[in-house]
């Protein structure tokens, strides 16, 4: 846990993860984004811009929420699906990735790349959890479209995002 009492008056302060841990998490997110965009034939890594400070913000905010769970939910660890859902939530808030290309048609195509990547991460996490319980994962395109629409235009809270992940998991 990274919240410590900094004085004897009951004042607690959040201490972010050390830089090495932050770096490993950052690399993991960027690596997954790279895998996701490798699917695209009309852009390369050089066309993609990453806001590093937003990536750090995302990691710190997820880390803080993990502490929140430990403090307010009897020292329990947040489960992986909730953690993935939190990353997705903050990805949608901070939108750290953008595509910078000269062709407006291509720029327009990738205007929602953060939302699509978030969807990829969420479904990847659900897939992993479903695999672990030995069930068969599948989804209809209609549902993927609905979720993608919700990511773009709806106001989904952190709790709603966690519920989406766990409900999907429970459905298999």
């Amino acid at each position: 846990m990274s919240i410590i009492e900094t004085d004897k008056k009951g004042v607690y302060t959040y201490i972010p993860s050390d830089q090495e841990e932050m770096y490993r998490d950052r690399q993991a997110i960027l690596g997954l984004f790279h895998e996701y965009t490798a699917y695209q034939s009309d852009i390369t890594d050089d066309d993609i811009l990453v806001d590093d400070s937003s990536i750090s913000e995302i990691l710190i905010r997820v880390d803080k929420r993990k502490d929140y769970f430990k403090i307010f939910h009897n020292k329990t660890d947040i489960d992986e699906l909730k953690e993935a859902a939190l990353i997705v939530y903050w990805l949608l808030k901070f939108r750290p990735f953008s595509v910078s290309v000269s062709l407006p048609e291509i720029a327009q195509k990738y205007v929602d790349i953060n939302e699509r990547f978030a969807l990829f991460l969420l479904l990847g996490a659900v897939k992993r959890a479903v695999d672990m319980k030995g069930a068969e994962f599948s989804l209809k395109n209609d549902y993927i479209d609905l979720l993608g629409y919700a990511f773009r235009y709806w106001d989904l809270s952190k709790e709603a995002m966690m519920l989406v992940a766990e409900t999907l998991y429970a459905a298999f």
């Binding site: 993991a28 992986e80 990353i87 699509r116 990847g124 959890a129 989804l139 993927i144």
Partner: peptide, 19 residues
């Protein structure tokens, strides 16, 4: 997360295509 995304790509490329 990495295993989940990798298996999604490997076993359900249609879903990733759609996303």
């Amino acid at each position: 997360l990495a295993d989940g995304c990798a298996s999604l790509i490997k076993e359900h490329p249609d879903i990733v295509d759609h996303i």
